[in-house]
Design a binder for these strands. Structure first.
Length: 305
RNA sequence: CGCGGGGUGGAGCAGUCAGGCAGCUCGCGAGGCUCAUAACCUCGAGGUCGGUGGUUCAAAUCCACCCCCCGCAA
């Protein structure tokens, strides 16, 4: 059971393995993107290429869905970024229950967006957790964990891709170990629980009173999508890449200190942030030099309002 | 039919409303200035104005259709 691209490496591992994949469960095709075209989830596309049966229940509490699932007589449920809280009746339906691939070192970053929040929080390392699923979100017993250092150049996009692969490998390992009976589930520590809520638009707004280092992490966490942003002259300006620049306290946070070939330097609550790649609404993403060529932003301009 | 912005020398943009010599900043090339430089000055090359059709004496500009890029919303 999984929906977006993050789940695909895990599905591929299962398809390549010795066990039969009786079905793929994902969220329904939904109108997405410009023009609201109805687009099938990534896992569905992958499943169909392999001729795997696909289930797309509107409601996970629907009895008809439960019947369909039961008819498949699954031995094990594998859930990767499905995007819905599953009721107990579904969790208990497979003979050996359900396991989950989660992109963090639980109990840290329970929730929908663990990868982004790990970067934004400044974590030095993150990883994946394979766990037995319980009704409480991401609170199940840990079966196996694998860690991955977070590099200073990791973005939400690149880190998620690496964790998807790491998660798939860990999943393979965990299933093999489970079948061999040499995997001992252990409860998550009571201490260290944090939550990583779904990323919403507002999370990307750069609050210039915050330290530059924190803003840089937010920019990376939300790249390439949905992106951190500020505003210039009332227009949305996405910031795709930026770097911290030490600097003396200066003008009010949000003030453009300088705008030249080497970047657009903005005063923050602590230090300065040099914007390197930006995108004005309706325009494509540009290196800051090209952006400034056609859209001059004089020093002294106040961003964010 | 979800709302909206855009496509103009290599890059980014103005010009379109009100049709009339293809413009700006940057880059590139040559020359000059300078102890020197990504600085400064002079000169220069480079464009089927996204495509097709239409209107017109005349279309980047007006009309119709099509292709492509992007922001919002979901």
């Amino acid at each position: 059971m999984g929906t977006p691209a993050f789940a695909c490496p895990s599905l591929e591992v299962l398809l390549a393995g010795p066990d039969q994949v009786v079905a793929v469960v994902c969220q329904p095709d939904r109108p997405r993107g410009r023009g609201l075209a109805v687009v099938p989830p990534e896992t569905k596309r992958l499943a169909e290429r392999h001729g795997i049966h696909v289930l797309q229940p509107e409601r996970v509490r629907d009895a008809a869905f439960h019947d369909a699932l039961r008819a498949l007589q699954p031995d094990l449920g594998v859930v990767v970024a499905y995007g819905r809280i599953l009721p107990r009746v579904v969790l208990d339906l497979p003979v050996h229950g359900c396991i989950n691939v989660h992109a963090s070192l639980l109990p840290r970053h329970r929730g929908a967006a663990p990868v982004q929040w790990a970067i934004a929080a400044g974590d030095r390392e993150t990883g994946v957790t394979i766990m037995r699923m319980s009704e409480e979100m991401d609170a199940g017993d840990i079966l196996l964990q694998r860690t991955l250092p977070i590099r200073p150049d990791h973005t939400g996009g690149t880190l998620a891709a690496e964790l998807a692969e790491l998660g798939a490998a860990a999943l393979r390992e965990a299933i093999d170990a489970l079948k061999a009976g040499r995997l001992e589930p252990r409860p998550q520590p009571a201490a260290g629980v944090t939550f990583a809520p779904r990323i919403e638009r507002g999370h990307g707004r750069l609050d210039w009173t915050r330290p530059a280092a924190e803003l840089e992490r937010l920019v990376r966490a939300l790249a390439p999508a949905p992106s951190a942003f500020t505003t210039v002259h009332g227009k949305v300006l996405k910031v795709h890449r930026a770097e911290v620049q030490p600097g003396p306290p200066g003008p009010p946070p949000g003030t453009v200190v300088s705008a030249a070939a080497d970047g657009l330097v903005v005063q923050t609550g602590e230090g300065r942030l040099r914007l390197l790649e930006v995108q004005l609404e309706g325009r494509r993403s540009l290196p800051v030099t090209a952006f400034l060529t056609g859209y001059p932003v004089p020093a002294g301009t106040c961003l964010g309002r």
